[in-house]
Amino acid sequence: MAKTDWGNAPFTIINFDRNHLHIYVKGRDKWALGQLIGAGNRGCTPIENPAPRWSAYVFNLREIGVQIDTVHEPHGGDFSGLHGRYILRSRVLPGHVEVVR
């Protein structure tokens, strides 16, 4: 089994206002960003994409400027209630890319 590199990786974030920023992400935050990118407009939930601390990863990404929406959805079962669906709203490019406005 190949080992995954969870070290620092550069990304360019382009937000709604067309402002952009260059960030570095590593570890589980990098994993969560990859999950959000892969999910597209359907987003991710802790139920469909299990991980110990989704809310913390989303918090960390938001703190560095990534725009992520949270939609609250009901779920059934023995522990019914609400869960969050996280939807990436920023455009994310791998590497540090110069963006022309």
Rank of each mutant, 00 (worst) to 15 (best):
T12Q: 04
L36G: 07
V66Y: 04
W54G: 03
A32T: 11
Y86K: 01
A2V: 12
V71G: 03
F16C: 12
Y86S: 08
K26A: 11
R101Q: 09
D17I: 08
I87H: 03
V99G: 01
V71P: 00
I87Y: 00
H72Q: 13
T4Q: 15
G40H: 05
F16K: 14
S80Q: 10
V25K: 00
I37E: 15
D29Q: 06
S90T: 05
G84E: 02
K30R: 09
N8L: 12
A9V: 15
F59K: 15
G84A: 11
D17F: 07
V25Y: 00
P52A: 15
G40Q: 08
V25C: 05
G34Y: 03
I37P: 06
Q67K: 13
K26F: 11
F11Q: 01
N60V: 00
D29W: 00
R42S: 12
G65Y: 02
K30F: 00
F79A: 11
R89E: 06
E48Y: 03
A39D: 02
C44K: 07
N49M: 09
A2K: 13
E98R: 05
L61F: 04
T70C: 10
N19A: 09
Y57F: 09
R53H: 15
I68W: 02
D17H: 09
V58P: 07
G95D: 00
A2D: 13
R28C: 09
E63W: 07
H20A: 08
R18Y: 07
L82W: 13
G34R: 04
R89Q: 10
T4P: 10
A56S: 10
H75L: 05
R53T: 14
K3Y: 15
G95T: 01
H75I: 02
N19P: 07
